[in-house]
Computed example of a mutant assay.
Amino acid sequence: MIHTFSADSFQSHCDLLAKKDKHLRGIIKKHGYPPMWTRKQGFETLILTILEQQVSLASAFAAYKKLKSRIGVVTPAKILAMSNEELRECYFTRQKQLYAKELATAIVTKQLQLKKFPEMTDEDVRTQLTAIKGIGNWTTDVYLMHALQRTDLFPLGDIALVNSLKETKQLHPHVTKDEMLTIAEPWRPYRTIAAMILWHAYIKKRNIKIEA
């Protein structure tokens, strides 16, 4: 079964979670509803997500803007036509140069067909994406959440989400992933929306400005 959220359903999902969990309710009461963070489906979004791996959102977006200013619409053919030096000038590390080209090659050879993803289950999407070098569970989670708008992802590979959960629930600094998943279990099948509420708290607490 494929479950997605939309602008029409997002706030009602937030309200449902607020009824279930006093801490999520407190975040919404203090900061309002979180933005419905979504991205376009497709190759360009995956490239941006690769750039976001293990760096700040600001530095990733700077690299993305540099790439866009250089080649315009980001397509597999354009990435494959760039030299490693040209990618380095757009702030791609050596690893991310390889990841971007591996992804582009998978799409050009039709190993990966992104247009089919909306009809595929979360796990089938995960199997296909994580078969590509440089795309792991975090990148897959982000794509499922923001591009495919699936309702039940909880990416514990995301440091901001983990820290916000620890702060909100006043957890022990060394709480395990299994313990955090147990805490998130009652939020099924809307853990994506719970994650967005927690990100919202993290961003507001630190007064972080998010570029789009």
Rank of each mutant, 00 (worst) to 15 (best):
E123K: 12
K115V: 10
H172C: 15
K133M: 08
S83E: 08
L87S: 09
Q149W: 01
F117L: 07
K115M: 09
M180Y: 10
R94P: 08
R94T: 15
L148Q: 00
L98P: 01
Q97G: 02
V125Q: 04
E179V: 13
Q111C: 02
W187T: 01
A184H: 11
K166V: 14
T168Y: 05
P118Q: 03
D124M: 13
T109V: 01
V74E: 03
T93D: 15
D178T: 14
D178L: 14
D152A: 11
R88N: 13
L114K: 08
Q170V: 10
A147G: 04
L87K: 03
K166A: 08
Q97K: 08
A184Y: 10
I132K: 01
L98M: 05
T176K: 11
L80T: 10
I107T: 11
L171K: 13
P155L: 07
M145Y: 01
K78I: 10
Q95D: 12
V108C: 03
A106F: 01
E185W: 14
L148M: 02
T176C: 10
A184M: 12
N137V: 01
E119G: 13
V73P: 00
A104P: 00
D124I: 07
K116Y: 12
Y143P: 06
Q95P: 07
E85G: 03
C90M: 04
P76F: 01
L129Y: 07
D178F: 12
K133S: 12
H146C: 06
N163W: 00
K169D: 03
T105G: 02
T75D: 07
T130I: 03
L103C: 03
E179W: 13
P118Y: 02
E85P: 00
G136C: 10
A100C: 09
E123N: 14
E179P: 11
L181V: 08
A131W: 06
V162A: 08
E102Q: 03
P186A: 14
G134R: 05
L114N: 11
Q111W: 02
L144F: 02
E185A: 15
K101E: 07
A184N: 12
A184C: 13
N84P: 02
W187F: 10
I107C: 14
I135N: 00
G157S: 05
V142A: 00
L165C: 11
E102C: 06
K115P: 02
A147E: 01
D152P: 05
T127K: 12
D178H: 14
K96T: 10
L80R: 10
I107Y: 07
K96R: 13
Q111A: 07
L156T: 08
G157P: 04
H174K: 15
G157L: 01
E179K: 15
L148E: 00
L87P: 07
E179D: 15
I107Q: 07
Q95S: 14
T168E: 09
V162R: 13
C90S: 02
A160R: 06
T127V: 09
V108W: 01
K169T: 02
S164F: 00
Q149M: 10
L129C: 12
